[in-house]
Design a protein around this nucleic acid. Structure first.
Ligand code: MN
Ligand code: MN
Length: 332
DNA sequence: GTGGACA
DNA sequence: TGTCCACAACGCGGA
DNA sequence: TCCGCG
């Protein structure tokens, strides 16, 4: 069981692709050992089971997953920084059993920042926060395939930075999801709400409206519910906002407004998902939605190239400057 | 994925 | 030493 | 107040 220490500058594999990859992150995950200790900005990150296969059909290992996250760190971090993180751990890979974990496990490095959130029950949960590459790799090493951060930053956990529409196909087709997204987009445009869309990497799409921080999570939930119910009423053959499964009509896209409730999370942008093809939750343009995209278009093997080409299409969602919609204008 | 409780 | 086990918990609305 | 739901 070899252990390596430090990031190795030596070039073992030459070629443009390797060079570009290293340039992107400056962190290289060792490939020919099971365990390693990386030193990143003076912090030691212990990585384990690096050769464990996480996607058997694809031959994708835990090291591949860690390398992906190291490479996308610059575009990913602004979206998750300062937010409590819910972990969903897949210790046995994408097809293995998974479990949720909220409390940051111990032992852990003392540089893992914790967000303590008190619940109405009186429970206080200490969630980890992903602030940098080191904490990101620590979290992924736990077996987290996707990242599920809170909508609100830790300094004010009841005032989110966005509202969203979670579009779930259920028994509907993905073409219907695309159609629904365009209608949601039009409706939001009418409300003066700039919005951003991404694939979930699983089945559906996420549409986010970044907002000026102020309204509570309940306010945001209420607004999303109102809009979802109106849309479903206007397009009853395409959409539903019925929360109860048994009462939900078949072949309709679910506008899952309840996902805007306090304490809930969604897979973050650039999260890999436990999908058979290792798909990634990927920002797309409204033009791409119009022309038609597929979940499987965006995967762990090709999203980095897309980011190199297009940058972060969701950057406005991650910065105060881009969080433009003010709820005061909604008081109609 | 990993530490703690048991046998 | 090996095996088993835990690892989350909010809030809506219908009953 | 309990349950289904995600
Ligand atoms: Mn969804
Ligand atoms: Mn959903």
């Amino acid at each position: 069981m070899a252990t390596r220490r430090g990031v190795h500058p030596a070039v073992h594999h030459s070629g443009l692709r390797e060079a570009r990859r290293r340039a992107a992150s400056a962190v290289t995950i060792p490939r020919n050992v099971d365990n390693a200790v990386l030193e990143i900005a003076g912090r030691e990150v212990k990585l384990t089971n690096l050769r464990k296969v996480f996607w058997a059909d694809l031959g994708v290992t835990k090291a591949d997953l860690l390398q992906y996250y190291a490479d996308v760190t610059p575009v990913l971090l602004p979206h998750v920084r300062d937010r409590a993180m819910v972990m969903r751990r897949y210790p046995n890979g994408a097809t293995g059993e998974a479990f949720f974990m909220k409390r940051a496990p111990s032992p852990r490095p003392d540089w893992i920042e914790i967000c303590e959130i008190e619940h109405d029950s009186g429970n206080v949960i200490g969630f980890p926060i992903v602030q940098d590459v080191a904490s990101l790799l620590w979290l992924v090493n736990l077996g987290c395939i996707d990242l599920n951060q809170w909508y609100a930053r830790c300094d004010d956990v009841d005032r989110p930075d966005y509202l969203h529409f979670d579009l779930d196909p259920g028994t509907a087709t993905f073409t219907q999801v695309l159609e629904t997204a365009l209608i949601v987009h039009e409706a939001l445009r009418g409300l003066g709400m700039p919005d951003y869309v991404k694939t979930t990497g699983s089945k559906g799409l996420h549409v986010y409206v970044p907002i000026v921080r102020g309204p509570t999570q309940k306010d945001v939930w209420t607004a999303a519910k109102t809009i979802a119910l109106q849309l479903a009423r206007a397009h009853p053959r395409l959409m539903t906002a019925e929360y109860k499964v048994a009462r939900r009509p078949a072949s309709r896209v679910l506008l899952d407004y309840n996902q805007n409730a306090w304490g809930r999370t969604l897979a973050s942008v650039y999260s890999v998902r436990p999908h058979p093809r290792a798909c990634v939750s990927t920002p797309v343009t409204w033009d791409e939605v119009t022309r038609g995209v597929a979940i499987e278009d965006f995967r762990i093997d090709n999203v980095r190239e897309r980011i190199t080409r297009l940058g972060d299409l969701w950057a406005p969602v991650a910065h105060d400057r881009g969080r433009r919609f003010d709820f005061a204008r909604l008081a109609s």
